[in-house]
């Protein structure tokens, strides 16, 4: 009797082991290729980057000459030009985000609401608004520069202006913002279009019966329904613009107050490109600091998103989505 139990136990164990093995094999073969490439092309360089931030460099090699120092970070928290420039640029980037991120959310949201009323030619409008974003920034930036040239630009001669758009700090930020809206809102716009498309029509009808005004309808029906999209856009747009570089590099490089125009990544790039390898450690440390900041703000966003009470309509919407 005991033997039999043992045998059963043994068989079960073996079966179990076999299935775990099979499962392991399955997971391994499906996840394996990605795991390997993730480790090789994402984790490895990242770890190397972190090591670099704790390393000292000589001017003769881009490989660290000494590992295990916190000097690079110490410099960033001391009273030095490099620290002042870096934190100023972080603050600049942050202010830029505070201006551009809301625009990159509200403008596409507004446009998506308009498209959602399905006016004639709405498919064409949707395509046209998305179009500028598909091109290389180098091409669209070049066109913008020529278009806003102070003396021979189309804009200034049409409106009879003499504004030097790229030579003044405020107007230069304005053009960069314009660039970000022109070429950057396409994705957000499409996501909002999708979100609005999926809002349960019966909710609108119900609110019509209740005699809701347009604004209240938007606030209580539409907004809760597209909350996932709203959050997604906020999250990715914020991360994207905290890393802003190309747009500024293209449009501001001739500004006499370039120091006021440089974003955090611009400062880091300054230290990396064509420069003394001795600065690589500082650049890496700056990158880590910036990353920590972004993660911090992202976590706040996540918490805010979770904590906000889910409204009744949104719950209904969720339920409906589940059932579909």
């Amino acid at each position: 009797m005991e033997k039999l139990v043992n045998l059963k136990e043994f068989a079960r164990k073996k079966e179990k082991r076999k299935s775990t093995f099979l499962k392991f094999l399955n997971v391994g073969s499906f996840l394996g290729p990605y795991t390997i490439s993730f480790l090789m092309f994402f984790v490895f360089p990242l770890v190397l980057g972190i090591i670099m931030s704790f390393s000292k460099f000589k001017s003769t090699s881009i490989m660290p000459s000494q590992i295990g120092t916190i000097d690079n970070y110490a410099v960033l928290f001391k009273d030095s030009a490099i620290a002042r420039d870096f934190w100023k640029s972080v603050w600049t980037t942050f202010k830029f985000c505070l201006c551009v991120v809301p625009l990159s959310i509200l403008i596409p949201l507004g446009l998506a609401l308009l498209v959602n009323t399905k006016p004639p030619l709405y498919k064409f409008f949707r395509a046209a608004i998305y179009l500028p974003g598909i091109f290389p920034l180098t091409s669209t930036g070049l066109i913008l520069m020529r278009l806003f040239d102070s003396h021979y630009g189309f804009v200034n001669s049409i409106f009879n202006l003499t504004t030097d758009w790229f030579g003044d700090v405020a107007s230069c930020w304005f053009i960069i913002g314009l660039f970000c809206v022109w070429c950057g809102i396409g994705g957000n716009f499409i996501i909002f279009c999708a979100g609005l498309e999926n809002v349960d029509k019966s909710l609108y009808e119900a609110s019509d019966v209740d005699g809701c005004g347009k604004f209240r309808k938007f606030l209580h029906v539409t907004l809760p329904a597209i909350k996932p999209q709203l959050f997604l856009n906020l999250f990715t747009t914020f991360i994207g613009y905290m890393n802003v570089y190309g747009q500024i590099y293209m449009l501001a490089s001739n500004n006499p107050d370039l120091g006021e125009m440089k974003s955090a990544v611009y400062r880091i790039q300054d230290l990396l490109v064509g420069s003394n390898p001795m600065s690589f450690g500082y650049a890496a440390a700056m990158g880590i600091c910036l990353g920590v900041l972004i993660i911090f703000v992202s976590i706040i966003q996540l918490i805010l998103n979770k904590e906000r009470k889910v409204s009744k309509h949104a719950k209904k919407f969720e339920a409906w989505k589940e059932s579909k």
Partner: peptide
Amino acid sequence: VSLIGLCSLAATSCNQGG
């Protein structure tokens, strides 16, 4: 282990040039 490996890798290659 991998950290040590990385460090030594970086350290050995730092003798290039110069």
